[in-house]
Design a protein around this nucleic acid. Structure first.
Lengths: 84, 84
DNA sequence: TTATATTTGTCCGTATGTATG
DNA sequence: ACATACATACGGACAAATATA
């Protein structure tokens, strides 16, 4: 699935737009539970954003319970949906 | 028994996946107490990983008490299970 | 004793990925 | 945006321990 372009005129921040895209991939099953989501570097390249922005997007998903982060390895789709 | 393929997108690191495979062989009795586990070189060939990774897998099992290592000879399934 | 092969031990450096300040 | 640290993996080189011919 191709990442959408960031809309810098939108009310939603770039980091939230990226988070929403990853979240939709998890919800649709494109990224199955326990599977790796794109790395920060890959998000930077795919969306053309700063690393900080990519990190914030992943942090949002982590705070929401959508992903689990393992230091040195990456972030992975949670085994169960938040509130599931 | 054929070694499983390493899943590089899984949450579990390659070294832990290899350790889990060896551990299961010991637990099932496939590798009896005192018997030799695969050498680092054999693990490298079987899983297609670097020796560093194979060594880490064995080190994990050693730390957990599943195997005993003898320099120049190899690693062997412990006589008794960890915590047994 | 010497030589060779196997296996583990110990370094080196490079790359990737996340954590923290 | 940057620097540093940590975790993990890859690849290579050589040493030490062990076993066998």
């Amino acid at each position: 699935m191709e990442p959408p372009e960031i809309d810098y005129d939108a009310m939603e921040s770039p980091s939230r737009q990226i988070a929403a895209w990853i979240r939709s991939r998890i919800e649709s099953g494109d990224i199955a539970p326990g599977r790796k989501i794109p790395s920060e570097t890959e998000l930077v390249q795919a969306f053309g954003v700063a690393r900080t922005t990519a990190r914030r997007a992943v942090a949002l998903l982590r705070d929401e319970g959508w992903v689990v982060t393992v230091a040195g390895r990456g972030s992975f789709a949670a085994e169960r949906r938040p509130g599931g």
